[in-house]
Amino acid sequence: MAEKIEIKDEWKAQLGIDSPPWTYEVTTTSIRAFARGVGYTDPVYYDIDVARAAGYQNLPAPPCYLGTPVFIPGKSDDTFSGPVNSGMSLLQFELVNVLDGGTEVEYFDSICAGDILTAVNRLVGLDVRESKALGQMLILSLEMEYKNPTGKVVMISRGQTILY
């Protein structure tokens, strides 16, 4: 348990800086894998004929599916699957325990199988809070912006990562 967390200047220096872009694929296979993982039984997320009958061109992305980052050993994080060069490594914060604090996704368009998205992420907030159970915690607020090939922002996800 961390005694006291002080926000360092080099952490603050990273606020608001976009990471290099990375490719996120939305495919029929990745949509089915996500839908199975959540436990969906709605055939629209599995069966292309049913999806077309419901008015989609292909399998639609289920809500909260944020695309699958292209995985390349050495360039991707082996645990969380995102790019390691995403501007920020959790290791620099010197705290070993990680929890998710909250998540939000906002859509500006529909997303379906076949879409290839380019995303950047950025640190937008740093906070220290006290928890009875965990002691002092560092709360990172992160934002990720996904564009389609025409450059339109189709989705923004926001989340808080808790380190302690």
Partner: peptide
């Protein structure tokens, strides 16, 4: 349980 499994289940509830 993954927090995001629960988040995604909220999305599933709304989708259903």
């Amino acid at each position: 349980v993954h927090g995001r499994f629960k988040w995604s289940s909220l999305g599933e509830l709304v989708s259903n």
